[in-house]
Design a protein around this nucleic acid. Structure first.
Lengths: 229, 229
DNA sequence: TCTTGTTAGATTGTCGACAATCTGCTTGTC
DNA sequence: GACAAGCAGATTGTCGACAATCTAACAAGA
């Protein structure tokens, strides 16, 4: 018999689909930060009752991309410059840790998967699909977390990633211009394949800082605009 | 006019109270790991309908202390030795980071609060209130996270703490003996008041390791027992 | 004009009932 | 006896309606 490892079967509850739908919309930046989610309107649009919708929203609140005020409503989180700084500085620390854990576990499968994800980023870049580009870049980045074999770390990173993805999407959408054309991950991938762990950790720190500055400038812009009200 | 800063008003939804009630029960170890939560039974006990109960459960699932399988049920998470190892190794990294961020921000208010929480631990120890002892010890430990002024880090730690609290509670309940009588936090508090940041970070690492070994032994016991089935 | 009370409309929170799904048992067949 | 089919019973998922609360507009009074 051929050895197949079947993945888990698809979630067939409405709730799970609503979660996925809402998350995608938020992370793609289709909903403005601070925007209120009207339960009745959304449930009618999705042709679902409010019960599973509300449960889905509860999940996303705990996931950190929605926020809820009793009897007032549920809102997309606001993005402040401080949030971005906080997320990034934590991300640096986690990156170093993830690389440390992953390092001794690298094998051929790791390198293959690294190339595969790198290729996906390049393809999205060529296709000028910005949303997909952000998504694939984060997936490339996430490999070290999946390989680190620490479930709590992975979970933490996934929560962090949700926000980073949202920040990037908003940023991209705001400046409304094609993405950085060429491949900024070449060095990162090469270092992960190499022999110098410290160098890889250092690069992860610095590479992050590049995008970070842009993103931060965007967030400051947002805050300035908000403070005018 | 006297300057008062009013805190946020109490959550008055049933959902919020249910969340608090369930969380307390789980973290205190009153519900066994792996135990199923029957919605109908619990909702009748609490005199609420299933809707707010289910929403509350969704929150706790995302919080990481419950797990849900569609059409099968919602269960208290299982505790494996690996989970504890993972949580603790991440905790070490976060501790170092939190101390680093907090260090330049220490002031008199910080030291006062440190003493206050330390005192709370000692009081719970004297009263032999194990649940409260765990709770206060984690609150003492959490001060550096609250002071670090990084909302994402704080949130991450709170999630981690939920599990650690549960692990400790189970551990204490299992060995069923009075707690470590004397004050193991004296050095930690002293170092946080001192001038040597590295020393404080080092101690955080080592101090953790003490309790960790005990906890791990307990978890291994759990797994051995589970594998017999 | 400013404050305070009132009211109508909209929205969120909660409820009880029904539909979909799972589990374990029974039954029938070989 | 082994095994598959089918049938309750229990439990989770979803629905539509009602109750509680908030918001904003308006009126009354100082």
């Amino acid at each position: 018999m051929a050895k197949l490892d079947f993945g888990p079967i698809a979630d067939t509850t409405r709730r799970a689909e609503i979660v996925a739908l809402l998350r995608r919309a938020i992370l793609a930046g289709q909903l403005e930060p601070g925007q209120k989610l009207n339960e009745l309107r959304i449930s009618e649009q999705m042709r679902v009752s409010r019960a599973p919708l509300r449960e889905a929203m509860r999940e996303l609140v705990q996931e950190g991309i929605l926020t809820s005020i009793p009897y007032a409503g549920t809102f997309v989180i606001d993005v402040t410059a401080k949030d971005i700084i906080d997320a990034y500085s934590l991300n640096k620390v986690l990156d170093e840790f993830a690389i440390e854990l992953t390092w001794p576990q690298r094998d051929q499968r790791f390198f293959d998967e690294l190339d595969r994800r790198h290729e996906a980023v390049k393809q999205a870049t060529r296709a000028k699909d910005t949303t997909r580009q952000i998504e694939t870049a984060l997936q490339l980045h996430g490999l070290i977390y999946e390989w680190a074999d620490n479930s709590v770390l992975l979970e933490t990173w996934q929560r962090l990633t949700s926000r980073l993805q949202m920040y990037f999407a908003l940023h991209q959408r705001a400046r409304n211009e094609p993405v950085p054309a060429e491949d900024v991950h070449e060095t990162y991938v090469a270092l992960l394949k190499g022999a110098d762990m410290r160098a890889a950790q250092r690069h992860a720190r610095e590479h992050i800082d590049v995008d970070f500055e842009e993103l931060l400038a965007y967030a400051r812009g947002l805050e300035k605009r908000a403070s005018k009200n």
